[in-house]
Design a protein around this nucleic acid. Structure first.
Lengths: 100, 100
DNA sequence: TTATACCGGGATAATATGACCGGTATAGTT
DNA sequence: AACTATACCGGTCATATTATCCCGGTATAA
């Protein structure tokens, strides 16, 4: 056992991360963000589409910086298990959904 | 060229990241933190010693979580090259030390 | 002697990054 | 209609790097 394969949970978390970044990108193009963050457009695309589940810390930090996202908020949202919305409870997701 | 080798700046940034995490660890042992963060003690050691320059985002997030560090603060601190005391030049031997 | 804690080096599977390809879809242009 | 440009997609490939294991070694302290 040298490098454990990604678990299903990690893959799903990667997909949530990609979806979050894509939402935060809004109307701006991938190319625009990628150039700003100094990452390859291909890399950004792979992350957004969830094909790269555990990107490098500097990569995500650079992208989040361009998108104006807090890394702590990104990590918190990406880790929370999706559950049915609670009509009576407080909306803890409101802030992270700002991008839409 | 498919995957660009790490630059000097990235290697040095990785070393600052490792030093920061080690400082934040305080008196607690590597094993303790690693088990809490669910990463291998070997991985934590390599990151702390700066032998892994660009760890995965989930890896750093988990460690920072255990240490009670903000990811945004970590990223900001690791990126400022300004030394408060005794400014030294760039470490031109960093790459050789990292070569395995 | 025993135990904890850390180190560097080596080895290896899995992954990330980056590039290329053809394809789809849309919108604007001639 | 045909053409052009932008934007994104999945697949595939090559190379660099990570995450994890193992080993022997050093240092400290009980």
């Amino acid at each position: 056992m040298v490098r454990l394969p990604l678990t299903f949970a990690e893959i799903e978390r990667g997909q949530r991360l990609g979806a979050l970044l894509r939402r935060a990108r809004g109307e701006r193009s991938m190319l625009d963000i990628a150039l700003d963050a100094r990452v390859s457009p291909e890399t950004l695309r792979k992350i957004e589409t969830g094909r790269v589940a555990t990107p490098a810390f500097p990569t995500i930090a650079a992208i989040a910086g361009v998108l104006g996202l807090s890394l702590d908020a990104v990590w918190a949202e990406v880790n929370q298990t999706k559950r049915a919305t609670e009509p009576t409870g407080p909306d803890h997701n409101a802030r992270e959904r700002l991008a839409s």
